[in-house]
Lab assay of single mutants.
Amino acid sequence: MATGGRRGAAAAPLLVAVAALLLGAAGHLYPGEVCPGMDIRNNLTRLHELENCSVIEGHLQILLMFKTRPEDFRDLSFPKLIMITDYLLLFRVYGLESLKDLFPNLTVIRGSRLFFNYALVIFEMVHLKELGLYNLMNITRGSVRIEKNNELCYLATIDWSRILDSVEDNYIVLNKDDNEECGDICPGTAKGKTNCPATVINGQFVERCWTHSHCQKVCPTICKSHGCTAEGLCCHSECLGNCSQPDDPTKCVACRNFYLDGRCVETCPPPYYHFQDWRCVNFSFCQDLHHKCKNSRRQGCHQYVIHNNKCIPECPSGYTMNSSNLLCTPCLGPCPKVCHLLEGEKTIDSVTSAQELRGCTVINGSLIINIRGGNNLAAELEANLGLIEEISGYLKIRRSYALVSLSFFRKLRLIRGETLEIGNYSFYALDNQNLRQLWDWSKHNLTITQGKLFFHYNPKLCLSEIHKMEEVSGTKGRQERNDIALKTNGDQASCENELLKFSYIRTSFDKI
């Protein structure tokens, strides 16, 4: 039985969820670079991206490699990797027998973001014989899940209580170790020597080791999670996991709180800001991140802002960003909400898709409305799209047979046209069989910064309504002859009103 693990408890099935942008060198404390989270699957090609990484700022997932063999891993080693800020997950990587050479110096898994409450997941690794993470000293947050690894031993010899604050939620089941077939031998045991430290858990006094050649490092209890030197002297209180010299914040392997210019500090002093819960960055760093993602459509890219001495992905609820200094300031009234469309555009074809934009005031991208039916549609669209004030790209209304009016965009005031449909149009209306009105132009103002209007096959939309939009939106004169079809717009509506004058002759039985 794995020490510190839980057996036999019912657990939810383990679901495996399925960018080499360097964020800056980590400095003297770390020998390499800070790398983003990685999802490495199918083959070993991307694994080489770990070569210079000291910190993975995010998670590391290595999974679904069915053609790899043990010899493929023999020359692979990433000794610079010290810390993973989120979680480490391995799933069905064939041929991998140990992690001792792959990650010989991995010391800390912070667990800032977890995989279903777990910071370390080893699942269905069919050839893994031992973990071998002999320098792993601290899992700051989260638990361990090690399950269905039929060859995995050296679990009962690990004292997880020396690595985690609590072992109650560890789930370590259905491994070879369960069948008591392992016969784990710690260093020196074969020669009758006791080389590794022994600890007591559940009444068992057991030597602690990761492999037959690597003991588990056990520091004096007084050192807590700070770690200790090879001689057993406690590291500085700002260290986490390990250090090369005692009581020196510049000799830590990793930091308990924050890293700044080669030393570990309790908090980031001005003019620095907390970033990702582990390091200090200056304003320029946060500003660069903001600008890199301002026009990016890459998933996970955030326009970072500053709030409460932190550089964070977005302002919290009730705050909006001051564009001059990136500071989050309290909103006066309802907060603006910028919604970034991942692929640059979004099609609204149902109430469900409209709900995804609920509360958005600025759309960074283009909207395509293609709704053919739905219950209580006008009210639903207004509830979900009615706060949109600005669209950076274009607005396209296409084959939306259920629409009679666009009044559900009740606050839309600006279409920038930074991206144009077919390279020309910022407003595009095609084949809307029941569209009769755009907006009530006596109450609604709309500016279209650039781009043209396109109207074709809107049989109940009168040309007068379209011409009014040209005047109000500032697009009059931009359109070419064929942009607004004269014969297919309003051709099934009563669009022309003329005053009919009647004269009559009164007659009676005795007068003409």
Score class of each variant (00 low, 15 high):
C234K: 01
C209R: 04
Y259L: 09
R256F: 12
N135G: 13
I139E: 00
L60D: 00
R297I: 07
C35W: 00
S77I: 10
W210P: 01
R208P: 09
A198S: 12
E180T: 09
C331N: 10
C209A: 03
I222V: 15
R263Q: 03
D248R: 03
H28R: 04
L44D: 07
A190N: 07
G183P: 10
R162F: 06
S225F: 13
K100L: 10
R113P: 02
Q245A: 14
F258G: 03
T157F: 03
I146C: 03
C234D: 00
C153E: 02
Y134A: 08
L289P: 02
C153W: 01
G183Q: 09
G37T: 13
P36Y: 04
T194A: 12
K217M: 06
P104D: 00
T194F: 14
K251L: 10
C35L: 00
M125S: 15
A190C: 03
G142F: 00
V281D: 00
N195F: 04
C293S: 03
Q204R: 04
K224L: 13
C243T: 00
C328N: 00
N242I: 12
I185W: 15
T45R: 15
C252L: 00
H127N: 04
E124H: 15
N42S: 08
D159R: 10
R298W: 14
E314C: 13
S284G: 04
A254I: 01
I163A: 01
H28M: 05
A156T: 04
T211L: 12
H48A: 02
A190W: 10
C286A: 02
M65C: 04
C215F: 09
L332T: 05
F73S: 03
R74T: 11
V173R: 15
K176T: 14
G37K: 05
C264T: 00
N150K: 08
L50D: 00
Y94V: 09
T107L: 03
T199A: 13
R297V: 08
P104M: 01
G203P: 05
K148G: 02
H212R: 07
S284T: 06
Y87S: 01
D288F: 15
I82D: 07
H212M: 00
G95F: 08
L120D: 00
Y304G: 06
S225I: 14
Q204F: 10
P270Y: 10
G188Q: 14
N282D: 08
G241E: 02
Y154R: 07
Y30V: 08
H290A: 04
N195W: 12
Y30R: 02
K67V: 09
H302T: 10
I306Q: 01
T140I: 05
P246G: 08
Q299D: 09
A254L: 14
N308P: 01
H59F: 04
P316H: 02
H59M: 13
Y319W: 15
N43M: 08
C328D: 00
P187N: 05
S317E: 11
D288Y: 12
I185T: 05
L96H: 00
N42L: 05
S213P: 09
N282L: 05
N309V: 06
Y118H: 04
N257H: 07
R92V: 06
L327E: 06
V305N: 07
L114G: 03
E71F: 13
M137A: 09
R141E: 10
C234P: 02
R74V: 02
L96K: 01
C335Y: 07
L136S: 00
D248A: 05
P70M: 10
S143E: 07
